[in-house]
Design a protein around this nucleic acid. Structure first.
Lengths: 221, 221
DNA sequence: TGATCCATGTCAGCGAAATGTCAGGTCGTT
DNA sequence: AACGACCTGACATTTCGCTGACATGGATCA
C-alpha cells in the first residue's frame, strides 16, 4: 500500500519511512505543507501520516482542505504538542487518529493498520474499464462478469492501472507500487507481468505508450 | 440529539451530562446495566456513552446484547482499563470508539462527534454464508441447521470472517482480532486454525486469496 | 495426585502456484 | 537498416499455504 508521509524533520521522516517500508508499505515523503496538499489532492494514497508543525502550510489546514475537496483517505496525525485541545482540533478537522510524539514505532504501525481497516468501507470499491470490472473488497477481477483468477502481483498491477485509468502510468510508478523499493531494474519482470495480465484479461485493456509507460483507456459513459 | 449515558458514578455522570446538555444534546442517564439494556433496546438514541464496570450487568454484555438484537447506534465506551486485550474485546462487542479515563470533556465531545459522523455500520444477531449460519447471541455455528462444536479460537475466526464476509480479510487482521497482539508471525498457527475450521465446516466456506488473506464469499439472497 | 481430555501451538515436508530469468522475437522510430 | 524498447514462451526457482503428527499445557475428575 502506498503511503504519504508528511514530516519536516528529516531524522524522524527517515526513521518512520524505513519502518513503514519494512512493514511492506510504499512510502513517499514530503516536508512541506503546500506540496503535501498538492500530492494528497491529486494522488491516491492508502493513508497519510501527517505531522503538524510544518513549514509552508499548517498541517491542520492541509487536512481540512483535503476533506473539503472530498478526499477521504485515512489520516493519522502526529504532533509534538500533546495537549487535549490539539487532539480535539485534529479529530474535528477530519483526522482518523492521533499520535503524540514521541511514540513507539509499533504503536504507529498498529494505529495505522487500525485506521486503514476502519475506513476501508468508505472507498468506492468497484471500478471498471472496458469489459473489465475490479472489485477491491473481494479483490476480484471479472471480464464481462466472468471472474478471472489473478496472482497477487497481477492483481496489484491491474488494481493500480484501473485506479489510474485514463492516464499514462510510468514503469517506475508501477515498480514502486507493485514491488517495494527494490532497485533492480535490469530485469524485465514488469514486462512479463504485463504480458501475463494481457493474456488473462485481453490485450486491448492495457495500451503501451512506448517510452512512457502504460495506459488503460477511460471508458466513455 | 438524544443520548443515553450509562454511568454509575454520580459525580462523573452529572459532570458529563451537564457538558453534553450545554453542548446541545438531550441526555438520559441510567446507572444500572439492566436498565441500560432495556432502554437501549426499546428506545432510539443518536448515540450511547457506555461506562464499563456497572452494577447489574456488565457493560460489555449490555453492548453485546444490543448488537445481537440489531441495535447499531454508535457507542462510545468509557473505561479505566485500556489494554489491547480490552480494546479487542470492546471492538468485538461492537464498540465504535474507546475513551480511557480520565479524559477531558472536550475530547469526549470530539470523539462523540466523530462516531456520530461516521454513522454507517450495522450488526445483526444472525449472519450466514452458504450453508453456514452464525448466531452471535448464542455463539453457535450451524451447517444446514446442524450445530457444530467449535473451540473458542475457531469460533472467533469464523465470527470475524462471517462478519466481514464479502471482503478479503488479511492474515494480519485475523491475528489482531483473534489473538490480541502484534508481531510474532513466524508461526503458522493461523493456517492450522483455518485448516481445522475447514475440516469442520467444509472447505468451500473460506477461500484463500494467496498473498492477501482469506475470503468468505457473500451469498446472493 | 495422577490420568485423561481438549485446545492449541510447533514442526517438517509436500506440492502447487507465483515469479524471476533468459533467450530470442517483434515492432516502431530515426 | 539499425537500434532500442517491448513482447513472448520456456524454464528454474522461490514462496506460500496446507496437512498430519506430535508436543505442551491447562482443566477436570476420580
Amino acid at each position: 500500500m502506498r503511503l504519504l508521509l508528511v514530516e519536516d524533520d528529516r531524522r524522524i521522516a527517515s526513521d518512520v519511512a524505513s519502518a513503514l517500508t519494512s512493514a511492506g508499505y510504499v512510502v513517499e515523503i514530503v516536508r512541506d505543507g503546500e506540496e503535501a496538499w498538492f500530492l494528497g489532492d491529486t494522488e491516491d494514497y492508502g493513508a497519510v501520516i501527517l505531522d503538524l508543525g510544518l513549514p509552508g502550510m499548517d498541517g491542520l489546514a492541509v487536512l481540512k482542505r483535503w476533506r473539503s475537496n472530498g478526499r477521504h483517505m485515512p489520516v493519522l496525525v502526529l504532533t509534538a504538542r500533546a495537549s487535549w485541545a490539539e487532539r480535539v482540533d485534529g479529530i474535528d478537522a477530519g483526522a482518523d487518529d492521533y499520535l503524540p510524539k514521541p511514540f513507539r514505532m509499533e504503536e504507529l504501525l498498529a494505529r495505522l493498520r487500525s485506521i486503514v481497516r476502519r475506513t476501508a468501507g468508505h472507498a468506492s470499491s468497484v471500478v471498471s474499464a472496458g469489459d473489465i470490472t475490479l472489485d477491491e473488497r473481494q479483490m476480484k477481477v471479472s471480464v464481462r462478469g466472468v471472474p478471472i483468477a489473478l496472482s497477487p502481483l497481477e492483481y496489484r498491477l491491474v488494481a493500480h492501472l484501473l485506479r489510474h485509468r485514463g492516464r499514462v502510468v510510468s514503469q517506475h510508478e508501477l515498480d514502486e507500487n507493485i514491488y517495494g523499493h527494490g532497485e533492480d531494474h535490469d530485469s524485465n519482470a514488469l514486462e512479463v507481468l504485463i504480458g501475463r495480465v494481457r493474456k488473462k484479461l485481453g490485450a486491448e485493456l492495457i495500451e503501451t505508450r512506448r517510452g512512457f509507460g502504460y495506459l488503460v483507456p477511460e471508458t466513455p459513459a
